[in-house]
Design a binder for these strands. Sequence first.
DNA 1: TAGCACAACTTGTCTGACAACCTGACGTCT
DNA 2: AGACGTCAGGTTGTCAGACAAGTTGTGCTA
Lengths: 230, 230
Amino acid sequence: MTFGPLRRSPLVGQAAERLRDQIAAGRWPVGAKLPGEVALGKELGIGRSTVREAIRALAGAGLVESRQGAGVFVIATEPVEDLPARLRRASAAEVYEVRNLIEVRAAMLAAERRTDEDLAALDAGLAARAAALGDDAAYIDADIAFHASIVAAAHNEVLTDLFAVFQVTMRPSLLDLLAVMDEKNLRTASPDPGADAHAAMVAAIRAGDAERAGRVTEAELAVSLGILRE
Amino acid sequence: MTFGPLRRSPLVGQAAERLRDQIAAGRWPVGAKLPGEVALGKELGIGRSTVREAIRALAGAGLVESRQGAGVFVIATEPVEDLPARLRRASAAEVYEVRNLIEVRAAMLAAERRTDEDLAALDAGLAARAAALGDDAAYIDADIAFHASIVAAAHNEVLTDLFAVFQVTMRPSLLDLLAVMDEKNLRTASPDPGADAHAAMVAAIRAGDAERAGRVTEAELAVSLGILRE
DNA sequence: TAGCACAACTTGTCTGACAACCTGACGTCT
DNA sequence: AGACGTCAGGTTGTCAGACAAGTTGTGCTA
């Protein structure tokens, strides 16, 4: 059993997630009224402003609706088909495993279908990834863009979009991953331990060797998954 | 002449809508930083708390992300589309390819993790599949259940749920597939051409041979995909 | 030039206050 | 009894101010 992202998150995020979970758990069915903002603040141990912002976040997601003078009401529970919500609720390791599973097969397809434009994009992605070293947020974004390029080279729009959902949802977890690696001093030896592996992925795709592309991709992703599992 | 109850919407809603429009219009592209909260407040003529709540609403909708000390950044220009809706919009071949991709890797994981209960469920699935021959609808349902059992044996809940979304969405397409096969007289020779292949999948999973499980699963699914591609 | 210290800026959170609004209880009138 | 109006209490909406916590760029130092 894992709780939400272990990320050092703002109180607003924590509060929104707790409320979200309780709505999903059925504490307040659709149409029910939430406790007042002051009551919620006391219950959650946070100020009223923070409660209000958490409620706004849920309202933006379409879960609740606030009516001045009346209260805050649940207008929908989390739809089961909502993949991003499902991913948020799941453990990071499970999400990561599925994400990797998709990318391994995508890399194999990419080796068979890649165009010259795809290869150019992959090269650019490698360079951007190296250039962003030092800035964690930019590094994560460059890494995400690179892996997205791999999947895009498989030329299956459903696959590309599906992968994007995973990437967006996992972005916070990836930042956690970097933080954990820092704590364990795993990055001191080499600032970008995956650089060679990423280059190998591109090389295999360029060579059109699907089997090798799948193998090196699997090996690269297994490293991070291992850290996440610990 | 009076118009309907033209309710004066709260400032938060107005502000969120204006910001959403401007993001959609491209004033701030993805990755760009919004003006500071105080600046936005002055620009919109509202207080900082109200600006913050509007930003929270957009963050809840997945449009922006705020990083303490850095600013508020655009992470998407429009909400992520619902996966079932996305699948319905896509071509059957693309959806089927992604579905198969998932199952191939799931079969490999299943070979490593299957329990005795999983194996019993797979055997039962094979039998149910054979028993449903002759009734197309029942046959499809039994086939779906069998493949779901394969994925379930991988013991990853996210994977199981994700696969289920594909299965549900694809059920109509599968009925079409049977009809196409009838037209081409592909079923006259053998009423259940995939029976041996399905049994081979179970055997490989029972043997714990991940590589073989992946190979036979891929081969089995490739047949249907080929028909669907024409 | 490389590294560090610091100031300026930005978001995060809390408190207090008042306005706008809704709901239900209560009393009055028909 | 039923319809209607009033009102008190609770609830959200909005603002201002203050301080904490985090980021970033600048300029100084070694």
